[in-house]
Design a protein around this nucleic acid. Structure first.
Lengths: 204, 204
DNA sequence: GGAAAGATACCGACCAGTTAGTATTAAATA
DNA sequence: TATTTAATACTAACTGGTCGGTATCTTTCC
């Protein structure tokens, strides 16, 4: 069990992320964060060197959790089949199911949220933000590389574009889901991308 | 030529949109907007009934300009061919070119930006925001409806999901473009969607 | 046609409240 | 008892918004 301080720190981060995804980073005051998480200003500043430092640790935490989520689904897919194409299709189906099982619309992506306020952060937070997108690209390119060794692509196209398309679909699906308050949009979009992958690699 | 007041108002809106896409709505103070647009606080409050009113007029203006843009490309595509599928493919190519011709990365989508700060707005601004996504869906469904009257779909799927995919691609492509500061990502994503449309409707 | 009144388009000082952050002190814990 | 964790009071700057005002233009009236 983590130290008392670690628990408080994690609680602050969880609360801050929730509020920031609702109102944006600038629209979420430290006052609102401490009020909702039940600590005081001194407690906040004991754990964080300021609001930008909070942002930095939020994005680090977010990317770590996302990596765990993506890699967890990939490992499950890999355990179920040896075929790299089927692994990706299973991965996408599992992701769609995970999004369907959310209690409401997806709360949002911190990377996108920070991107839409990019001028409010220092260079390090912006760099970590970009690093997030690049790490997703790398994960997907790895899988796609295994696929094209075994299956020819119906349309020749760069793998980073195709890898980015999954990120696009997720980011865009989140925006539409939240905007329309319709939790089914994101899973449906993921399944669309799955259709595209099938059309690209499977025989008719 | 619009009245002096109309010109000032449009100037405030253009400046506000640029700044809000950089720092978010909450991260953009009225002070920053008036400073950058060269008027005073009183001048601002002469034109707008407050910051939320500014947001309302920003989203109305944004959706109007977007409709003009989308419908302009669609009309051009329709002028070039009678075939609904080719119209969509041309439309997507034209859109990709328009995104390629931007001086830098796409500045951002106001609907997505406002969605990521949704709790900072009143119900009317949120409703207008949702209306934007729905209007895009309607435009694309119209075109897709004409296509499926003539071409069978290789995978049976709801048209609103497919229509939403273009919105997803654009929203997601914008996030990746900005985050990585790479202006080619968005056009490439649009062309990916175009590939998917071809695979769905064209014979192999 | 010129004076008076009204409309338009702002200016800038001021206000109350909120903000991020600091200094000091206190409580909890190992 | 030393360290960790937190509370409290406070500060200076910033925020959204109000209000009394000015300058200019337009309309009305004599």
């Amino acid at each position: 069990m983590a130290a008392k301080g670690e628990q408080t720190r994690e609680h602050i981060l969880a609360t801050a992320e929730k509020l920031i995804l609702q109102r944006g980073y600038s629209g979420t005051s430290i006052e609102r964060i401490i009020s909702e998480s039940g600590i005081t200003k001194g407690g906040f500043f004991y754990h964080f060197d300021g609001k930008n430092d909070l942002a930095k640790h939020l994005i680090l935490r977010y990317l770590e959790q996302d990596a765990v989520f993506f890699n967890g689904l990939l490992e499950r897919a890999r355990a179920l089949t040896e075929d790299p194409l089927q692994q990706l299709l299973i991965f996408l189906k599992l992701m769609g199911e995970a999004m369907t099982d959310l209690p409401g619309s997806h709360p949002g992506c911190l990377v996108a949220s920070f991107t839409y306020e990019s001028h409010q952060f220092d260079a390090e937070v912006r760099r970590l933000n970009a690093e997030g997108i690049l790490s997703w690209r790398r994960i997907f390119i790895e899988q796609l590389t295994e696929i094209i060794e075994k299956y020819p692509m119906k349309i020749e196209l760069p793998l980073d574009n195709l890898a980015d398309m999954l990120t696009s679909i997720i980011e865009g699906g989140i925006v539409i889901s939240r905007c329309l308050d319709d939790k089914n949009v994101l899973p449906n979009q993921i399944l669309q991308f799955r259709n595209y992958i099938r059309l690209l690699f499977e025989d008719a």
